[in-house]
């Protein structure tokens, strides 16, 4: 109620009736230019409305499977869009309709693609093909970026998150998947060493080559093991790792996969 124009209840009711009359196309009393203009505008909006295309056969679908939805959507799109939207559909980049073509059809295409990718990711997770699922989810996440409709994008993202949540504990690629039998791993996982989660450095403390066995392809094996960051938690007394001399090898940092309770003072 900003009170910029205050109307009496009677005026408000009269205006409501006037708008009803305008929208019905009734004859208007008096010589209200604005009301007459609104009526003409409304008539103009109503002119030559294109005929509706026939509705595609929609199968009674109790189970709303993904493919059925895609099929219905595609059928509806092709029939309706094909019949009536030829102008925009066929518009090239130099056409004034091009933005609409991209907006309307591009969006639909992007959406379909993302939904499809998400469905494949779900299947992959169900089948235990986690690497494939991860790749598909990454693709889908990228595709969601093209979806402009915020609600739709949100829904797709939560689908993606939900599926991601079903993946096994992240295999965090930089993690040194060192086998428990290697109290002192190789130096190969060195790159992450300077990071606060320096467990990687621990693997470098000894140099037993055994630690490298799984180093290259160890992502999968590492997945089921305790999170690589966990060892940090059992080292409350240690000074902040980042301050360590970067070539950590001498420090008694435990190998991530081993819960070494008593840190051997392998110092020096």
């Amino acid at each position: 109620m900003s009170g910029e124009t205050d109307h009496s209840l009677d005026e408000i009711a009269a205006i409501d009736e006037l708008l009803d009359a305008v929208s019905r196309g009734d004859d208007l009393p008096g010589s209200d230019t604005l009301a007459a203009a609104l009526k003409e505008w409304r008539t103009d909006l109503d002119e030559d409305i294109p005929e509706s295309a026939p509705i595609p056969e929609i199968p009674p679908a109790p189970a709303r499977t993904f493919w059925r939805r895609v099929a219905v959507g595609v059928a509806a799109a092709s029939v309706l869009a094909g019949g009536l939207s030829i102008a925009a559909h066929g518009a090239g980049p130099d056409s004034p309709l091009w933005p609409v073509t991209k907006a309307v059809y591009g969006e639909t295409a992007d959406l379909r693609l993302v939904e499809h990718t998400i469905a494949r990711a779900r299947t992959a997770v169900d089948a235990g093909r986690y690497d494939e699922a991860r790749r598909l989810l990454d693709d889908a996440s990228e595709g969601v970026g093209k979806i402009r409709d915020r609600g739709t994008a949100q829904r797709l993202r939560s689908d993606i998150d939900e599926i991601r949540g079903r993946l096994p504990v992240p295999a965090t690629p930089p993690a040194p998947a060192v086998s428990p039998s290697a109290p002192s791993g190789g130096t190969s996982p060195a790159p992450p060493a300077p990071s606060p989660s320096a467990p990687a450095g621990g693997s470098g403390s000894g140099g037993a080559p055994g630690g490298d066995n799984s180093g290259g392809s160890g992502d999968n094996g590492g997945g089921a093991q305790p999170s690589p960051t966990a060892p940090g938690g059992i080292l409350p007394g240690l000074p902040p790792l980042p301050s360590l001399p970067v070539p950590v090898p001498t420090l008694p940092v435990p190998v991530p996969s081993i819960n070494v309770p008593g840190l051997p003072p392998v110092g020096g």
Partner: peptide
């Protein structure tokens, strides 16, 4: 254009 959007 508007009609195309309506179709969408």
């Amino acid at each position: 254009t508007a009609d195309d959007v309506a179709q969408e």
